[in-house]
């Protein structure tokens, strides 16, 4: 089980801020493919990965990063702080 979080328009497209997902994906990219295959709302959120960022256990990461040992994955658009 892995906690998956969504922020900003990713959260709006998927419809929930957080969910627990049972997955055997070994990388972030594999997890994204699994989600995209689930339902159109995931496909809508993950259609363009270049428009997305990912954090693993609250550290900014990459889509090719392994998921081993990770408990929290977050997907969001590029950040707009300041």
């Amino acid at each position: 089980m892995i906690d998956v979080m969504y922020f900003a328009w990713v959260r709006e497209r998927i419809g929930v801020p957080k969910e627990q997902i049972e997955t055997s994906a070994t990388t972030v990219a594999d997890l994204v493919e699994e989600l995209r295959a689930r339902e159109p709302r995931y496909e809508a959120a993950f259609a363009d990965l270049s428009a997305l960022r990912v954090a693993l256990d609250q550290d900014l990461s990459e889509f090719n990063a392994p998921l081993a040992g990770v408990s929290e994955v977050a997907f969001f658009p590029p950040m707009t702080g300041g």
Partner: peptide, 23 residues
Amino acid sequence: YLKSRAPFWKKEVNADGSEWVAA
């Protein structure tokens, strides 16, 4: 760094609707 590495997202809301601010 705060602008593009701190996880904040801004949405502008006006009378006609709302829009996420793009980086």
